[in-house]
Computed example of a mutant assay.
Amino acid sequence: MPPASSDLLVSVAVVVAVSVAIGAVVPFAVRRLGRRWPPAEALVRAARFPFRVLVLVVGLNAVVAANRPRGDGAELWDTLALALRILGIINGAWLLAVVMLFAVDAALRRADAGLDPRNAKRVRTQVQVTRRVVVVAIVFLALGAILLSFPGVRAVGASLLASAGLVSVVAALAAQSTLGNLFAGLQLAFSDAIRIDDTVIVDEEYGTIEEITLSYVVVKTWDDRRVVLPCTYFTTTPFENWTRKDTEMIGTVLLQLDWRTDLSGLRAEFERLLDSTPLYNGRSSGMVVTDATQGLVTVRASVTADDPGLLWDLQCLVREGLVTWVREHDPEALPRQRWEIVPGRHDGQPTGRADHAA
């Protein structure tokens, strides 16, 4: 075996051994230093493999740089050096993404553990958008670094700098919609206009915010459909957010009854229904007559619940209970239509008057 080949193999063996040692010592040291910080173990598990590969690639790149000949016959070495450089960029981006996403997830865990539900939803929304921004930024940086590793691409890039003004204008016009959605997504994430799990009314559709990306928002409707809207919709179109400040809501139940309704008994039944269900949070309730026209009275019962879902269930429960009570205990309150039959005009014989109930 030629001496040069022997030296090369020895160098490679030494680099591999050192890389394995570093890949074992550094995670162990991080565990020891972070033994009082529980997330340290999770960080080591997530970053261990990309870190070891990166150390090995850096070592092999140093071996190639030290043994690569100059002049003719170096094409194979140049190709190997380029491949190692690209592999190092990929592994560096991988390791950076793992560390950055770990930090973002740690913030999300703290938000879920130590904040009230409203602030936790806000932080969860911002963290999800931040994760996507971090991944996209790292991918673009890695692709740019890889492309700049090729001499031909560097030459093309230098020639394009001369017309950068024109290119930027054309690119801005072509990507106007995409960039608008991108900035709208960032604005939604950090302006606290909507958050994950917020209850909203968009295009007369009732639903909850299921996902917020850099370009669109997914709204899950009450019947499990998904309405996908561009982020610019929420920055340019009015919409209702029922849970922006807090999740507690007030709802009403309307009944149209006869004037002979026993309001005292109806109100007592209403209070009994609220006392018998955990859906009612006890914050506010009341029953009043809001209108009395066309032979009917309109009774409005107002209730409160901790969130829109519970409020809907409570409204249905109260409505069903009051309807059942009126039918079984106060049938005189059932709606009636009254009319009067006037005397006949053709035969001159009066028909009298009658009071009909229907």
Rank of each mutant, 00 (worst) to 15 (best):
M1N: 00
P2Q: 05
P3Q: 10
S5V: 11
L8E: 11
L9G: 00
S11A: 15
S11G: 01
V15T: 15
I22T: 13
F28H: 03
V30R: 07
R31A: 00
R35P: 03
A40Y: 06
A40Q: 01
V44D: 11
P50C: 04
R52N: 06
V53P: 02
V53S: 04
V53Y: 06
G59T: 06
L60K: 09
N61D: 12
V63N: 01
V63T: 04
V63A: 14
P69G: 11
L80S: 03
A81Q: 13
L82I: 02
I86L: 04
L87W: 04
I90F: 08
L96E: 10
V98L: 09
V98M: 08
V99R: 01
V104A: 15
D105H: 14
A106Y: 14
A111E: 08
A111Q: 03
D112K: 14
G114A: 06
G114Q: 03
A120N: 03
V123D: 00
V127T: 15
Q128M: 14
R131N: 14
R132Y: 12
I138Q: 01
A142C: 03
A142Y: 09
L147V: 06
L148V: 06
L148K: 00
F150R: 01
V153P: 02
A155N: 09
L160S: 08
A162E: 14
V167F: 15
V169Y: 13
A171S: 13
A172M: 09
Q176G: 13
Q176P: 02
L179Y: 12
L179C: 10
G180I: 02
N181S: 10
N181G: 09
L182H: 06
A184Q: 04
A184H: 02
L186Y: 02
F190D: 05
I194M: 00
I196P: 02
D197E: 14
D198F: 01
D198E: 01
D198C: 10
T199R: 12
V200I: 03
I201S: 08
D203C: 05
D203L: 15
Y206E: 11
E210P: 02
E210L: 07
E211D: 07
E211T: 03
L214Y: 01
Y216L: 11
V217D: 07
V218S: 13
R225L: 08
R226N: 14
L229Q: 14
P230A: 03
C231K: 03
T235D: 07
P238Y: 13
P238H: 12
F239N: 07
F239W: 01
F239M: 09
N241V: 10
N241C: 09
K245M: 11
T247S: 15
E248M: 12
I250Y: 14
T252M: 09
V253D: 08
L257R: 03
D262V: 06
S264I: 14
A268P: 09
E271H: 06
L273W: 01
L273F: 04
L274Q: 10
D275T: 01
S276P: 00
Y280R: 00
R283E: 05
M287G: 05
T290A: 02
T290V: 07
D291A: 07
L296R: 12
L296F: 00
V297S: 03
V297C: 00
A305F: 00
P308I: 14
G309C: 01
C316Q: 11
V318S: 05
L322I: 12
T324K: 10
W325V: 14
W325H: 04
R327N: 10
P331N: 13
P335W: 07
R336A: 03
G344T: 07
G352S: 10
A354K: 10
D355L: 11
A357I: 04
A357E: 08
A357V: 07
A358T: 13
